[in-house]
Computed example of a mutant assay.
Amino acid sequence: MDILYLLIPLSVILVLAILAGLWWAIYHGQFENVEQEGERILNND
């Protein structure tokens, strides 16, 4: 039971870190043009 006092705050911190990373990626335009990037690797230059 004592381990829950450690695991619950760690899991909350992990979830917040994941959400912060996702927010950062969206805010900085990482998902702006997903279709073009998928086609770029198929085109021969």
Rank of each mutant, 00 (worst) to 15 (best):
H28M: 00
G38K: 07
V34M: 12
I13D: 07
N44L: 11
Y27Q: 09
D2K: 14
N44M: 09
W23P: 02
I13Q: 06
I26Y: 05
L7K: 12
E37C: 06
V15N: 04
I3C: 04
G21M: 12
I41N: 02
E39H: 03
L4I: 01
A20W: 10
R40E: 10
V34S: 05
E35S: 07
E32Y: 07
Y27V: 08
S11T: 15
P9E: 15
Q30I: 13
Y27S: 07
I41L: 13
D2Q: 12
R40K: 09
R40C: 02
N43L: 03
V12Y: 06
I41W: 09
N33Y: 05
L22H: 01
L16R: 04
V15C: 06
A20Q: 03
V12D: 06
D2N: 12
D45H: 08
L10V: 03
N44I: 11
L16T: 14
L42H: 04
R40D: 12
W24L: 09
V34C: 03
N43E: 09
A17G: 14
S11I: 15
G29D: 06
D45P: 08
G21E: 07
M1N: 09
L16N: 06
N43Y: 00
L7I: 15
D45K: 06
L6A: 09
A17Q: 05
I3D: 13
L42W: 00
I3P: 00
A17D: 04
L10A: 15
A17P: 04
L6C: 00
I3Y: 13
V15Y: 02
L4Y: 05
G38R: 09
I26V: 15
E32F: 03
L19W: 12
G38N: 08
S11L: 13
M1T: 11
P9W: 14
V34Y: 11
L22I: 05
W23L: 02
L19A: 13
G38W: 12
E32I: 02
G38F: 13
E37M: 04
I18K: 06
L16I: 15
L42M: 06
I13N: 06
I41F: 11
L16F: 07
F31Q: 04
